[in-house]
């Protein structure tokens, strides 16, 4: 109930913020531009549309998750709005969770709007498009939730610019850990091997959520896999939120 109040307020803030609409506008524009690009390609037009659509949903989702996420807690502290909240009978972790869920709610709305536009476009080109793209969108959404939690973690102790840099790096690294591990396993040094292996399991593996290429080329992705990836996402988010809560619980609001 209290968490919901914070979440709804966070959602309301995002909705009344103009940045969101700007990003949404660009996202829709980008999906629409895939029509144009599709025309330039000989052969499989829907492939381009699918590629562009999924990429836009993912890219703009990440932008919103990072840009809104990094300011989520910091802005409350900087503008001292947090003072009145903490003085109310609410645990700090409830506040944090509320902020997180508020942004997730924002992302849900944003992803739903973009996906609707994207799928309508697909239906225009194909009478019965392969609905496996929904699986890809589902996993993109889980990736967005994970990135949001990382942004929130950094935002709970660092300035927005630093958080932005950190989160963006985590996003990039999160897509490269697989390569990191592979490079490490080629190394002759056992230490390097172990370190890269350790990093591989420690850092978030965002490639787990990337089934875009499979879906676009109609390579089957089992629900079992989706379930694994989603569980991975939820558990990782739980860890990140837990760490954020610990940091947030201990800090002074000067």
């Amino acid at each position: 109930m209290k968490i919901a109040a914070i979440a709804i307020n966070t959602f309301r803030e995002a909705v009344r913020d103009k940045i969101l609409y700007t990003l949404l506008f660009f996202a829709i524009a980008m999906i629409a531009s895939s029509i144009l690009l599709g025309k330039l390609v000989i052969g499989d037009q829907t492939k381009i549309i699918k590629d562009m659509g999924l990429a836009s949903i993912s890219l703009f989702g990440v932008l919103i998750a990072i840009f809104v996420g990094i300011g989520l807690v910091f802005k409350e502290i900087e503008r001292k709005t947090i003072y009145t909240i903490i003085a109310k009978p609410i645990q700090r972790y409830q506040f944090l969770l509320g902020k997180y869920l508020g942004l997730i709610l924002t992302l849900v709305v944003e992803v739903v709007i973009m996906s609707t536009g994207f799928i309508l476009l697909l239906f225009y080109y194909e009478p019965s498009p392969d609905m496996d793209i929904l699986k890809a969108i589902l996993l993109i959404f889980f990736e967005l939730m994970l990135i949001t939690s990382i942004a929130l973690l950094f935002s709970s102790f660092s300035t927005p610019i630093m958080s932005g840099v950190f989160t963006l790096s985590m996003y990039v690294i999160g897509h490269l850990t697989g390569d990191l591990k592979m490079l490490g396993s080629k190394s002759e040094s056992a230490a390097v091997k172990h370190i890269t292996e350790f990093m591989y399991y420690l850092l978030p593996n965002l490639e787990n959520f990337n089934i875009k290429a499979k879906v676009v080329h109609n390579i089957p992705v089992s629900w079992g896999y989706i379930l694994y990836a989603m569980s991975y996402g939820i558990l990782y988010i739980a860890i990140i939120l837990l760490i954020s809560a610990i940091i947030f619980q201990r800090r002074d609001f000067k």
Binding site: Y201, S222, G224, Y228, I239
Partner: peptide
């Protein structure tokens, strides 16, 4: 943490 580790192992083994 152990759950995450075993999940990642499982994911790496999946045909996907």
């Amino acid at each position: 943490l152990p759950l995450l580790y075993s999940l990642q192992k499982q994911i790496d083994l999946s045909p996907e």
